[in-house]
Design a protein around this nucleic acid. Structure first.
Lengths: 208, 208
DNA sequence: GGTAGGATACCTACTGGACGGTATGCGGCC
DNA sequence: GGCCGCATACCGTCCAGTAGGTATCCTACC
């Protein structure tokens, strides 16, 4: 097993380096040599763990997704609050985790390989929609709202705000912008009595 | 001058083909050969008009931007309505104009060359902010709103919604999603009396 | 109005380098 | 000694860019 421990370490080093390079340059502009160098690993080692550049990129995407979801602990509060918390978890993960950043960049670059990206978009907005449905049932939302449309708008808005925050301030104002988003969005979505109980700003989980 | 007419035509053909290919594959993955073939032009011709791949990309970005702004005719209505109209003009331009699509894709891929893209983001959100200030002065908005934040949120949201609409429905539901966005956003932004006078859906300019 | 000369607009063939991927070798732990 | 986990050297391909030629047209001078 000691053997495999080392292998796991190099695999992880490659994944991290790949995420960094993909995040900085994008898929096509990233070269395997870049990744090798940054990981401090040789070609043979890399191609032992990943059979191609594309497979490596897919691994980054998958690991990034699970890394994000791992940070998010569902609080049993209100469904609407959960949607908000999810967006903050996403923002934090983007700021803190290279894997998540690389994953997102690759996902947004829907070219080259298209399949899993669509799934990611779908998955996210489907999850949001489901939460909205539960919020609807709990009487949190205004009646007559198009839940599918709302879910798509939220997912799109968070994605785009993240992008422009990255370009303009290297994601330093991301949390602020997410707060602005919810401040603006919620009055059109939830009823006043529910609005009063929602936390629009980031809720930092208590450190245990 | 007849001479230059032909030259202009090939230049335009190259620009259009380049916009297509950049839109489909992104900057790095797009090859000059792709563009040549699609434009029906030889390498010599292309390199006569554009000295490098990067210069060609920059030309696509610039032409795309002006193409978008050309479609938008400022109506002297309310400033807030102008913001809304701008977003619809953007959406329409994305659906109708290859140049705009290519321009956007290149702009979003902020790698490789970073300068003018930041300017584009800045310019857009600055313009939005200015309109919001005028809307504020006109008493359209709720008091105490962070105009800078709101402008950034709108610009980011429109960008992101466009992106996810592209991935999920090839931009077919883009206009709908923009309408959803404004339906959700406006109550948190503008005062009821102004809200009543705003058109949340696309206002099709009368054909003259 | 014909033609020399030059500029414009384009074509063809080529190059050098980089890049993804592979083949083969080899050390060390079980 | 056998296989896991790598290291090194190499290969074919592809691609941005260039060199140098050519046809077309415009200008100018006779």
């Amino acid at each position: 097993m000691a053997r495999q421990a080392r292998a796991l370490a190099t695999r992880q080093a490659v994944l991290l380096a790949a995420a960094e390079v993909f995040d900085e340059r994008g898929y096509a502009a990233a070269t395997m040599s870049d990744i090798l160098e940054r990981a401090g690993v040789t070609k043979g080692a890399l191609y032992f763990h990943f059979r191609s550049k594309e497979e490596l990129a897919l691994a980054v995407i998958l690991e990034g997704q699970s890394a994000w979801l791992a940070t998010w602990e569902p609080s049993s509060d209100s469904p609407m609050q959960t949607v908000i918390d999810l967006s903050y978890a996403f923002a934090r993960a983007l700021q803190d985790d290279v894997l998540v950043r690389g994953s997102i960049r690759l996902t947004i670059e829907h070219g080259s390989f298209t399949q899993p990206q669509v799934a990611a978009y779908q998955g996210w907005s489907d999850a949001t929609r489901e939460l909205l449905e539960r919020a609807q049932e709990a009487g949190e939302l205004h009646p007559g709202i198009d839940l599918r449309g709302a879910a798509l708008v939220m997912q799109g808005a968070v994605t785009g705000i993240q992008l422009s925050s990255q370009v303009l301030t290297d994601r330093q104002d991301l949390i602020e912008r997410i707060a602005d988003l919810w401040t603006l969005l919620l009055p059109g979505l939830v009823q006043p009595h529910a609005l009063a109980r929602l936390s629009v700003v980031e809720r930092v989980p208590a450190v245990s």
